[in-house]
């Protein structure tokens, strides 16, 4: 290979290195630094090796939070992805209805997170909330509805918040994917005599693979990192029933000021998100590709 006349081109890459260093590498290294030390005070720290990691990996409260987290994110994906696809399929394809439905869908995405918390707390309050008063007046529940009273009620409220807030994003992505399918595909299917289900299964769904991959990854990461909603609603309660990983982490780091364990926890948390994002990405990339002639 020929040798370059000079290496000035490297200077062009330098700004990116600087930005990435400050935005990712340096903060991450700080956390790594904390995670291997026991800090008693400024200038008074002891190197402890992997002790914090071992402690966190065997912490049963972390295990509980982790399973809770998996359950929550799994439910979020199971509800939001199919619901988003259904909404996108039902949306009008031309006329004034398009802009109307797009704007309506965008509303939840535009509201600040703490306002969302407040809206839903008021909405579900058993004394003045529309939902809380409404459901209790029907007298269906053994224990009157109160999102702070029972874990299941808190979960239902939280899921409703999450679904209301983020399904529109999935729907918008799917809608964009559907709109990108050329009309000729539908004509071809019509000529083949394909049913509506076949059109969905063999044209729309495969053509939405790209946007669905993005939707799944975004909703997975975002719901796995959920903090604002449970914090605003019950602060992790009742009991520990909505103490997800972030809530627990914040309690550990800023409540008990256990910086070492919290740093170790953060790194584990980060790796879990990364690992599952990778798994989802690979799975979605290859799903449906194994269909060979029978």
């Amino acid at each position: 290979m020929e040798k370059w006349a000079d290496n000035k081109a490297w200077f062009l890459v330098l700004p990116v290195f600087v930005v990435v260093a400050f935005s990712a590498i340096i903060p991450l290294m700080t956390v790594v630094n904390y995670s291997v030390q026991d800090i008693f005070g400024p200038g008074n720290a002891v190197f402890v090796g992997t002790e914090w990691f071992e402690q966190m990996l065997t912490d049963h409260r972390l295990h509980d939070a982790l399973w809770r987290q998996f359950l929550f994110s799994g439910l979020v994906l199971l509800i939001e992805i199919p619901l988003g696809i259904l909404i996108a399929l039902a949306m009008p394809k031309k006329g004034w209805g398009v802009s109307a439905s797009l704007v309506t869908l965008a509303i939840p995405l535009l509201i600040p997170w703490n306002v969302i918390g407040t809206i839903w707390i008021i909405f579900t309050r058993p004394d003045i909330g529309l939902f809380g008063v409404g459901i209790n007046s029907l007298d269906l529940l053994e224990v009157p509805f109160d999102h702070t009273a029972r874990p299941s009620y808190a979960w239902v409220t939280l899921m409703a918040m999450e679904v209301w807030h983020w399904t529109p994003l999935v729907a918008l992505l799917c809608y964009a994917g559907l709109r990108a399918i050329p009309e000729a595909y539908y004509q071809a299917a019509k000529i083949d005599g394909a049913s509506a289900w076949a059109v969905f299964r063999y044209i729309q769904l495969p053509k939405m693979r790209g946007v669905l991959t993005i939707a799944v990854l975004l909703r997975w990461m975002d719901s796995f990192l959920i903090y604002a909603e449970p914090f605003a609603l019950t602060g992790g309660g009742p009991g520990n029933s909505t103490t997800f990983l972030s809530i627990y982490l914040v309690k550990l780091a800023t409540g008990q000021f256990d910086l070492g364990p919290a740093a170790a926890f953060s790194l584990i948390y980060f790796l879990i998100v990364l690992l599952f994002s990778f798994i989802f990405y690979q799975a979605l990339l290859n799903v449906g590709k194994g269909e060979k002639a029978s």
Binding site: A184, Q187, K190, I191, D192, A293
Partner: peptide
């Protein structure tokens, strides 16, 4: 309706079922 007309059509764009193999695509009609 188009289903009962016995027509076949080829388009400007390359229209095939994206998740099916060539074999299944050809077999689909």
């Amino acid at each position: 309706s188009v289903r009962k007309r016995g027509v076949a059509m080829v388009y400007q764009q390359f229209i095939n079922y994206p998740s099916l193999t060539v074999y299944k695509n050809i077999a689909s009609p």
